[in-house]
Amino acid sequence: MKILYHHRTASKDGQAVHIEEMIEALRALGHEVRVVAPMAEDQSGQGQMGSDMGWVHKLKALMPKALYELMELAYSWVAYRKLMQAARDFQPDVIYERYNLFLLSGLMAARRLKLPLLLEVNAPLVEERSKHSGGLALPWLARWAEGTAWRGADRVLPVTRVLAQHVWDQGVPPQRVVVIPNGINRAHFAQAPSPDEAKSRLGLQGRLVLGFTGFVRDWHGVDRIIDWMATPHAPTNAQLLVVGDGPVRADLEAQARRLGLADRVAFTGVIDRDQVPAHVAAFDVALQPAVTAYASPLKLMEYLALGKAIVAPAVPNLLEVLTDGVNACLFEEGRPGQLEAALTRVCEDTALRERLAQGASDTIDRLQLTWLGNAGRVVALAQEAAR
């Protein structure tokens, strides 16, 4: 098939991983993919994960919020012209778009070209932006744009069943909604070192490594991990390794110094994406202390792929993938002491860690959590929609 792939993402973070992996997987299956996107041809900084669209945030801060939102909607016309130009040359069979708020160009082009539109949805952005970043100036317009995009697509592809409920609530028929969670690229993790070798490379021999990957924010709960490490319940050789960076890094480092744990809490800072498996391989316990209610966390897929004992909250979106005692040690979110009790349990019980690690590794095959598998499902849905 010829797939015209459209997105409005310019950041180099988890969003970029999803985009790049899906495109690569579609091409690996023998399909042609033409990308239409901001900076689509700009490969500067490729591989550097954790950076953000600084220029966008600066522009947003300088403009009245309502004007910025109208500009987002107006961008749909800019992207529509790009899509139509690409379609004339490429002659696609389907349009695949990564949903973004106020972005209607994929729907506009699909209707004009009489092509099926597959819309990947990673978040209910009206809800998300209403709660964060100072809210929305034009919520009525945002709700209209989101509903129009979701209802207009031939297939809507949310990443969790929790998110699918948001889509159904907008009036999209269930038969047009197919959940496709995030996945992993097996080749990306095939060359990861053994845990002992990974620890040796990082100078962590003899440590019980608790690991977290990603851009650390205040709601992630990493501060609770550090507090627990200062208690008698934590092994004296426990080491926290944060693979990434984030706005609360300085606060967490200060907390560790205050508790006498400065030498047992380490941040790698932003690293190349290709280096992530070699760091995660060193984890004995992989941490997902908190999660957005509708997300399919990429870090969770990486933990599973490398066979790590996972500690995570027992919330609906994670329960789509995790089972307590099988591939994770789950705790009840919101109950004081539950996270800490789970940490103590998994750190004290070597046999439990080994059992969870094996269960985690088996999960990838059992649930087919790979980008190649996702790409195959997308192509099948596109062919179905085209018929």
Rank of each mutant, 00 (worst) to 15 (best):
V209M: 09
M229V: 00
T213S: 10
D196N: 14
T213Q: 13
D218F: 11
H188D: 11
G206V: 07
H188T: 09
V222M: 12
W228G: 03
W219L: 11
G221Y: 03
K199V: 06
D218L: 11
D196Q: 15
H188K: 11
L210I: 04
H233N: 10
F215Y: 15
F189V: 11
L202D: 09
S194I: 05
R224H: 10
F212K: 04
F212H: 08
W228S: 01
W219H: 13
G203W: 12
I226H: 00
S200C: 13
F212N: 02
A190I: 04
S200I: 10
G214K: 03
E197L: 11
T213L: 05
W219N: 11
W228F: 10
L208D: 05
I226C: 02
V216I: 14
D196L: 09
W228H: 02
T231P: 02
V216A: 15
S200F: 14
D223Y: 00
I225D: 00
R217T: 08
V222W: 03
R201C: 08
W228R: 03
P195W: 04
F212L: 05
H220V: 12
F212V: 06
R224N: 04
A230N: 03
R217Q: 14
W228Q: 00
R201H: 12
S194W: 07
I226S: 01
V209I: 12
V209H: 00
A234L: 00
M229S: 02
G203S: 10
V216S: 09
I225S: 01
S194T: 15
D196I: 11
V222P: 14
K199W: 12
G221Q: 04
A192D: 10
R217H: 13
V222H: 01
R201F: 09
R224I: 01
H220D: 13
P232H: 09
A230R: 02
R201S: 12
A190K: 14
R207P: 05
A234W: 00
L202V: 09
G214V: 08
D218C: 02
L208V: 08
R217F: 05
Q205K: 15
L204N: 08
E197A: 08
W219P: 13
R224P: 04
V209R: 07
R217G: 09
P232Y: 00
G211I: 03
Q191E: 11
V209T: 09
H220L: 10
A190G: 10
G221K: 05
F189D: 06
A234H: 01
V222L: 14
Q191V: 10
H188S: 13
L208Y: 01
G214Y: 06
K199I: 05
D227R: 15
G211L: 03
Q205M: 15
A198M: 13
I226N: 00
D223N: 10
S194C: 03
S194K: 04
H233D: 13
L208P: 07
Q205D: 15
H188C: 07
